[in-house]
Design a binder for these strands. Structure first.
Lengths: 174, 174
DNA sequence: TATGAAAGGAATTGCAT
DNA sequence: ATGCAATTCCTTTCATA
């Protein structure tokens, strides 16, 4: 007798509407608030999204456990680190480059302190490196020492970043 | 009688050596620890860098007040937001574009929810937009609706991001 | 699933070295 | 600049609706 035909079975509440990734409206509001203030206290977060602190706490933990939130990172003014010059370096790889050597190369680039981000584009033969360095001679040294001189690299094109704007932070692909 | 001439005035300690931006070694260690774990508690931070919690607290506040740390942001897995496709769109502007219209255009692009980052390159006539969208048709719609159709835009080139790695987060230019 | 209460822990401030 | 101590606030868990 599991029939639910009594006419009072309308359990679909508006707040239960889940969008992509199984996120409901409260989840999305939490992400929005935390996006640019990751160190906000749980109490503040709860007040900002209009729920009890215990509720915000459970939701936030769930977002982390599900991997929706991949981490909390600190935004640093690169100028204050002595890196007042940013650039995007477009790297073209040799057509015949072997997969293993490309991966070794990529790993090496990723580990360099000047490197902020690496975008691997359109297959395996092309990427863009976002770097922050002290000045133009350090930029040249970076490109020469770590890119142009590698056998895997066919070409590089360097563009100076004159202005930069960030809306959100994407997780590294895993 | 405030003289401190008792011969024990050698206060210069090696830890006081400051590098670029007036940061000493402890500041740099704090930034390193916090870079990928912005929500770490002050007590944990202090233990991680080997000082008392009060010291870590004072240093962290100073880093924020001086603008070395520009903020704490949350890294979100874009797939879980229904944005499983990322791309870099290279935008060439019309040579005759007026400064004001370029700025209006840039402001409009920055406000779009698909946009993660915008790099303004090599002057004022060229930039790269990092976007996260649901699929290839959404990507096409983004490029057509917000870029190609604008009078300021001369050309666009779209590259799909197959892999992405982030080492650090730079502050938006102010 | 959301909430409120209770206990334990942490942040923040002032003060002393 | 660092360490310590006291107050206040927050986090965390659990029972409840």
């Amino acid at each position: 007798m599991d029939r639910s035909d009594d006419g009072a079975v309308v359990r679909a509440v508006s707040k239960d509407v889940r969008g992509p990734g199984g996120l409901d409206d409260l989840d999305r509001r939490i992400l929005e608030v935390l996006r640019d203030d990751a160190r906000m206290s749980n109490a503040e977060l709860a007040a900002a999204v209009g729920v009890a602190p215990s509720t915000a706490h459970v939701r936030l933990r769930s977002l982390r456990e599900r991997g929706v939130i991949s981490g909390f990172v600190t935004s640093v003014d690169q100028r204050r680190l002595g890196r007042g010059l940013q650039a995007l370096v477009h790297v073209g790889l040799r057509p015949g480059a072997r997969r293993a050597s490309i991966e070794d190369f990529a790993r090496e680039i990723r580990g360099l302190p000047q490197v902020l981000q690496v975008f691997f584009l359109g297959g395996v033969d092309d990427f863009i490196v976002h770097v922050a360095v002290s000045d133009s001679s350090a930029l040249r040294a970076f490109v020469v020492d770590h890119l142009s001189s590698k056998p895997t690299v066919a070409s590089t094109t360097t563009s100076i970043v004159f202005d930069y704007y960030r809306n959100g932070v994407a997780a590294s692909f895993g």
